[in-house]
């Protein structure tokens, strides 16, 4: 046990306690949390800054608003309903298409209008929100993922998680939905995370259920060697989120849309640490390397260039 402890320490693995106390508390001022905890304000903020996001179709704010739901959905064959304060992908409902009066989920199961309305009402009552406070339901564009990950994702939309420290992307991973995660790209729910080299945008090794893996658990295909398109553009998008939120230790979730390119999905002020397993790399060393630099460049593009130079592998 103690041997493992020392080995982890030597490899610079960041633990939850250290993440919270040494990085989140000093780098993420509490007053900026609402910007990221509420996806609606994140979205408004991003639109203002000119960052691409999935189009917002509408917001249901109250039980009374639910009457508008049918009209709102009628004009969009595919959409996503999500709680604006949800955590960990909870309460996200992805509708692929509309067949007669029924909605078809990503996995092919169908839902009636009633069921969709009930789900929305649950969101409003705060069942998925942090602390159970009443919430709003966001209805937005259903992303058509770039086919590059089609072979290694089970339904759902894979996304790319960047860990951005003081505006510098330090670690990255692709999160691929699995059968177990029910199409959700969240590691806690069973998605597989694949490490991505910051400098090249090429995938390396994976993590699934906290174990190091190198093949997709559902398909048995190798995870390494995939080239993520638009990588520099994607890194810069992540770097810009620092100015957007003022949060120094930030998880940035980005989806690659087939036609629209990288879209900012959501931000996380308490990013998970499984990304270290996916990359087989401890965070401490990289964070310390950045802190050792002193002042960092002002522009996102300069920071991205610096990151790529700093972490070539």
């Amino acid at each position: 046990m103690f041997g493992t402890w020392l080995a982890l320490h030597r490899r610079g693995i960041l633990g939850i306690n250290a993440r919270n106390r040494d990085y989140i508390m000093p780098r993420n001022p509490r007053r900026h949390y609402p910007l990221v905890d509420n996806k609606l304000s994140t979205k408004h903020l991003a639109i203002e800054a000119g960052i691409a996001v999935p189009t917002l179709y509408g917001v249901i704010e109250s039980e009374y608003d639910l009457r508008r739901l049918d009209a709102l959905l009628a004009s969009h064959p595919g959409f996503v309903i999500k709680p604006s304060r949800g955590a960990g992908g909870a309460g996200v409902l992805v509708i692929d298409s509309c067949r007669k009066a029924l909605f078809v989920k990503a996995d092919g199961r169908v839902l009636s209008h009633h069921e969709v309305a009930y789900h929305t009402a649950n969101i409003l009552s705060g069942i998925y929100s942090l602390g159970g406070v009443p919430d709003q339901a966001m209805i937005e564009y259903r992303v058509r993922p770039n086919p590059i990950f089609d072979a290694v994702s089970y339904l759902g939309v894979p996304d790319i998680r960047l860990l951005v420290y003081r505006g510098m992307p330090v670690l990255a991973m692709v999160r691929l939905p699995t059968r177990q995660s029910d199409g959700k790209a969240n590691l806690h729910q069973g998605a597989v995370g694949v490490g991505v080299k910051i400098a090249t945008g090429r995938t390396t090794t994976g993590v699934w259920q906290n174990r190091a893996v190198s093949e997709h658990p559902d398909f048995g295909l190798p995870l390494a060697g995939l080239e993520i398109p638009n990588w520099p553009q994607l890194l810069e998008l992540g770097a810009r989120c620092f100015e957007l939120t003022g949060l120094g230790f930030l998880g940035v979730d980005i989806v690659l849309d087939q036609t629209l390119g990288p879209l900012l999905l959501e931000l996380n002020a308490r990013p998970g640490l499984g990304i270290q397993i996916a990359n087989r790399t401890g965070l401490r060393g990289r964070l310390a390397a950045i802190d050792a630099l002193g002042a960092l460049p002002e522009t996102p593009s300069a920071r991205v260039a610096l990151t790529c130079a700093l972490f070539p592998d």
Binding site: W5, R11, I277, G282
Partner: peptide
């Protein structure tokens, strides 16, 4: 303990693959 930044025992289990 509010200033304890060491690993949790559960993390030793969680990150065990990284010691290889």
């Amino acid at each position: 303990f509010g200033a304890y930044t060491g690993y949790r025992l559960s993390e030793i289990l969680r990150f065990r693959d990284l010691t290889r």
